[in-house]
Design a protein around this nucleic acid. Sequence first.
DNA 1: GCCGTTTTCGGCCCGACTGTTTTCAGTCG
Length: 573
Amino acid sequence: MDKKEIAHILEEISILLEIKGGDPFRARAYRNGARALLGIDEDLAQLIKDEKLTDYEGIGDHLAQSITQLFKKGKLPYYEKLKKSIPPALFELIQLQGVGPKKAKVLYQKLKIRSIEDLKEAAEKGKISKLKGFGPKTEKNILASIENKKSNQERTLWWDAEQIAEPILKQLKKIKGVKEAEICGSFRRKLETVGDLDFLVSSNQPKAVTEWFTSEKLAAQVLAKGETKSSIVLKNGIQADLRVVTPEEFAYALIYFTGSKEHNIKLRNLSLKKGYSLSEYGFEPKKKKALPIVKKEEDLYRTLGLSFIPPELRENRGEIEAAAKDKIPKLIEPGDIKGTFHNHTTSSDGRNTLKEMVQAADELGWEYIGITDHSKSSFQAHGLSEEQLLEQIETIAKLNASKKFKTHVFAGTECDILPNGSLDFSQKVLKQLDFVIASVHSSFQQDEKTMTRRIIKAIENPMTTMLGHATGRLLLQRKGYAVNLEKVIDAAIANEKIIEINANPLRLDMDWRFWHKAIQKGLLCCINCDAHTVDQLEFYRLGVNIARKGWLTKEDVINTLALKDVLKFLRRK
DNA sequence: GCCGTTTTCGGCCCGACTGTTTTCAGTCG
């Protein structure tokens, strides 16, 4: 069993314990353990062998034992027994908004509800409102949650979330009395997908803000509406939450609502050690103690003995420990990008011509742009033949010589890695290019060993400059192919090859979770748009988001180099 | 079940909103 599967079982145990009742902290301990396990970057097999699991916060002797057993045998008697004692229907019920372990249990015991269908029927017959502790509103809400079940479960790509959230933010800022407004939560942390949108506003007149937010203009459904907190479902089905605080509370609330939850819990524990209780409204001294002055997020972190932690890093993956030692790196910024390498034109499956793409790059102020149309095996994407590629190289040389654009054009290819690991063009042809991106576009079903060997073979090919979309995943649509990324990363480092961050909103591949460790080992990154239109060159901003989440600095990313240094880099081979 | 510069026992992050009940439990983030 792998890390993810084991964490899933620990999480399930936590839910089972919640349903069973008893000590709620024990249930929480399992949940914390599951989270801790997911946060581990090291190789699980090695950690188990070295008996190092308990080094991680949240994993004690008992959980370490359970994890070890699940890893080795794929079974845990305690879990099996627990699962048998709880009907599976309860699991389904607590997935619904507004139904937790307690309500699910009552529904199961009193009304013999065994499925969502049972529940719907009971609600429609008015049976639920007659239960003790339930009422007509609860019954109505349950029906509404069943109705919304599907749309509420879906997440949204960050890029799409931005298009939805920014206009709302703009409107919020215009409301009378509003001092500051910000989009918080996973959106501000720049996670690849966003579950719901969290808006935070500071104002001394919260009512005006809440009224606008819950008005029919914006909300398809109002889930909750209070003095300072309200929740709605937007017309497109995405949930949005609003909190209104006073201007004095804003910095505290900003940190709180940006999260992550795990990051916040750590901050609060740290705060308790310093003698303050911390909430979204401020510090509360445990004993008589002067209150620190907190106007900005920086001030709050400083009070806790930490340097500022950028939102992207607030995932409880070592950032608090680093901040305590003043070791938070200066992260890369959008302005550092001087060009990108992975871009398509109408010659293969792009929508804009070479000239249009270069002109757009010029308008962005880029010093260079790489053109990488598909290779011949990608016929579904109109991959170029060798002759067509050679022709394109010529065209690019002429364009560069014409000095029509300030932006220099690098001739490249997104060359298929064939199922056996060889590249789709001959070495002789590849040699004529400025650079080569090698990507997998076929035989996704290969097993992990074969796929890993295939990709490493491509990395070892002296013609390869960088690896494209390392796992081939499409967010919310398809999982990546099976591949051992750790081995791929090691191979890239050993062969001095680059791995890209593919900034297409659907890809964001290689995943940010791998980068922090990879750059420490010496891996180089390239942030690429994989643009198929001129508009998509804007994706580089998203690539920078992901790079920041991976702790990357300007120095880790090849396309922050000026043109002359890139030329030097590409020529060194 | 985890954890410890007050603790190996007794805490465990903290608060808002809802609905039902009449002071609070359940749920959520």
